[in-house]
Design a protein around this nucleic acid. Structure first.
Lengths: 157, 157
DNA sequence: TTTATGCATTAATGTAGATTAAGAAATTTA
DNA sequence: TAAATTTCTTAATCTACATTAATGCATAAA
């Protein structure tokens, strides 16, 4: 239950590491992500204050995801060992978010996904760099940039 | 704990229905899916024998997903009411599958996703119609068809 | 201050997969 | 069985987004 401070860009966990933990974010912003075989990053989730960032592997399995800090942050690492914090509701919530993300990725265009992202995580847009938001949306930074222009233009009219 | 028989194409649950249940599959094959605003189906998961098919909403919320039978099946509906079958491990497993699916959708090409699907669910390929597999992969049936040819051609050489 | 290094933008060109359409096979229904 | 319906395939065309590359702007380092 100790709070620890981490600085921007500090890596908390790497893919393949053992003893995966959960991280409760007191302040700041974390992210979890993978790196594919072409070396490309894919952001899995953002973790602003109040969120818990976890790689859903059992504590004795190697991690699937990298976790690092986008901003200087204060976090509380939580051991996964005991069956303590089985907050089932949070699990179900998490599954639903993923469920929606899968559906989004399958059915919605990049513009729609961006719109959805804005309305769901309005404050993260300002805090995370563009290329990370692009990565979360599953598009390139270039595509995000032009997409934003199109949006502006069509709204201005 | 009663087993019930359902026939091919029988719908167990519609989006918006209340009193969502889980369905343990004794034999046969179920699927869960959404229908987007363009009327297009997106298969969320296949449930062959041994699997439990669930829409992860709390029992008093309206369903997000449709669930129906791809083959004549024998299933056991499970009430979600009590906190009985909180098999946490299954939850975590489910999240991991989703986690992988998201990563797949973001980083892998249609061919790679197909390869992955084949190796993960070899028997479903033969049992579900192509257009459903295409839907699961997030591509059109036409794209799946041509993709299969390319695969064959490159292997024959 | 100057010089780097990283990040965002724009534009030209390329490509995976969507769409459309038509026909062939297979399966279901009568 | 034939007729109807559903499923699968093929090919032509189209489009959203990727890739590449060049340019401007930050922030950070020297």
């Amino acid at each position: 239950m100790e709070k620890i401070k981490v600085v921007k860009k500090q890596i908390l966990q790497r893919k393949g590491d053992l003893h995966s933990k959960s991280y409760k974010v007191e302040s700041g912003l974390l992210r979890s992500y993978t790196i594919d075989d072409k070396g490309k990053e894919h952001i899995f989730m953002f973790g602003p204050e109040g969120w818990i960032v976890t790689d859903y592997v059992s504590p004795n399995e190697p991690c699937e995801l990298y976790i690092d800090a986008i901003e200087d942050s204060v976090i509380v690492p939580i051991e996964k060992t005991s069956s303590q914090d089985i907050d089932l509701k949070k699990f179900i919530k998490r599954i639903r978010v993923l469920q929606n993300r899968v559906i989004m990725l399958m059915s919605a265009s990049a513009v729609d996904r961006y719109e959805h992202f804005i309305s769901t995580y309005p404050n993260i847009i300002q805090r995370a760099p563009q290329h990370m938001i692009a990565s979360y949306l599953g598009i390139t930074p270039e595509a995000l940039s032009t997409l934003k222009n199109q949006r502006l233009r069509s709204k201005k009219k």
